[in-house]
């Protein structure tokens, strides 16, 4: 039989089984039956795009973990630094100094108008920007702050002008915890880990705490877009996420379903990453919205920014040799 006829016969046999996995191959000559059997096995063939994309994701993750394991991209900073952009920036700087013994101060004018300050709180950095000249919607945030003595820090925060959201109490998950709201509307969950060191292993003094509607879909997005790694997830009885901890480079952050007084507060994350351009492209490919294309900044870093589906803004910064402050 001519090859054309054989190729037609083979394809006729394959059409129904490729369309429906339950369909059976018709009776065929032994040669064609052998080829058709092989074709059925090829239904499991991986898509090339998938193979390549996964390799790129793993390379990125390896690069991030390598960067985290060796030396920080900017001395004193972990991968994530929360950025609080509020009109009450000056008052907030005073508050974190008085309440939390924060060190640091104003370094100059920020790219979005107003002042730019960098404060060290515990072992972590927090950026504060804005003031009266803030030219964008304020973005206060919620931060989990681990301290040696939750009760004492809570008292100091109240004395420094914060409003109490929750008095110190032992929580079932092994922390003693309190919550306050500062003058700029930020929430501070002040906690002491009760068994062992006051900061749970693997965490830093400060981590961003997101409350969301649809936490699991945001986790799925962040895994794809930024290579975030889910460390733990505790479901709530209603099937939502009560609490999840995620790692990105040398930092962790947490999230849970919005409820009661803990409602969404879209947050600005500043990330120090080895390759801002690559992460920006990866995030866009995963469906992030571009906020700023990668560009060299006058202070010596290459910076890009995206917005995730929950409205959080992610700034990717790769410091250059000339980076100031």
């Amino acid at each position: 039989m001519a090859k054309a006829n054989l190729s037609e016969e083979l394809n006729r046999a394959l059409e129904p089984v490729l369309a429906s996995p339950d369909a059976a191959l018709p009776a065929l000559s032994p040669h064609i039956a052998g080829l058709a059997g092989l074709a059925l096995e090829l239904r499991f063939l991986p898509r090339e795009r998938f193979r390549v994309r996964l390799r790129e994701e793993l390379e990125w993750e390896a690069k991030m973990s390598e960067a985290a394991a060796t030396k920080p991209l900017r001395v004193g900073f972990h991968t994530i630094t929360p950025y609080i952009a509020v009109r009450e920036a000056t008052e907030l700087i005073g508050f974190v100094k008085r309440a939390f013994g924060a060190e640091g101060g104003v370094l100059g004018i920020g790219s979005e108008g107003g002042i730019h300050a960098e404060m060290k709180i515990g072992d972590s950095m927090v950026m504060i920007g804005g003031g009266a000249a803030l030219n964008r919607t304020p973005m206060p945030t919620a931060l989990h702050y681990y301290v040696p003595d939750c009760d004492a820090v809570y008292r100091r925060a109240i004395e420094a002008g914060a409003t109490s959201l929750m008095e110190p109490a032992d929580q079932f998950y092994g922390d003693r915890e309190a919550a306050v709201k500062d003058v700029a509307g930020n929430h501070w969950y002040i906690a002491t880990h009760l068994n062992g060191p006051h900061i749970p292993p693997g965490l830093h003094s400060i981590q961003v705490s997101l409350h969301l509607h649809g936490a699991s879909s945001l986790i799925e997005f962040l895994v794809k877009a930024l290579g975030v790694e889910e460390i733990s997830r505790h479901p709530a009885p209603d099937g939502t996420i009560a609490h999840a901890t995620l790692r990105l480079g040398s930092s962790t952050f947490e999230m849970g379903a919005a409820h009661g007084p803990w409602q969404p507060m879209p947050t600005m994350f500043n990330l120090y990453v080895p390759d801002a351009d690559a992460l920006y492209c990866r995030a866009l490919e995963a469906g992030a919205e571009s906020v700023a294309e990668p560009a060299d900044q006058p202070y010596g870093a290459r910076v890009a920014a995206v917005k995730d589906p929950a409205g959080n803004r992610w700034y990717f910064a790769t410091p250059g040799k000339t980076m100031s402050h």
């Binding site: 991986p46 390799r55 793993l58 390379e59 690069k63 390598e66």
Partner: peptide, 21 residues
């Protein structure tokens, strides 16, 4: 050096992908 993981990935991808579906 985790950056070398790519070689292990290439070597084992097909075996894992043949297992999972």
């Amino acid at each position: 050096d985790p950056r070398r993981f790519g070689e292990l990935y290439e070597r084992n991808f097909d075996r894992v992908y043949a297992f999972v579906p």
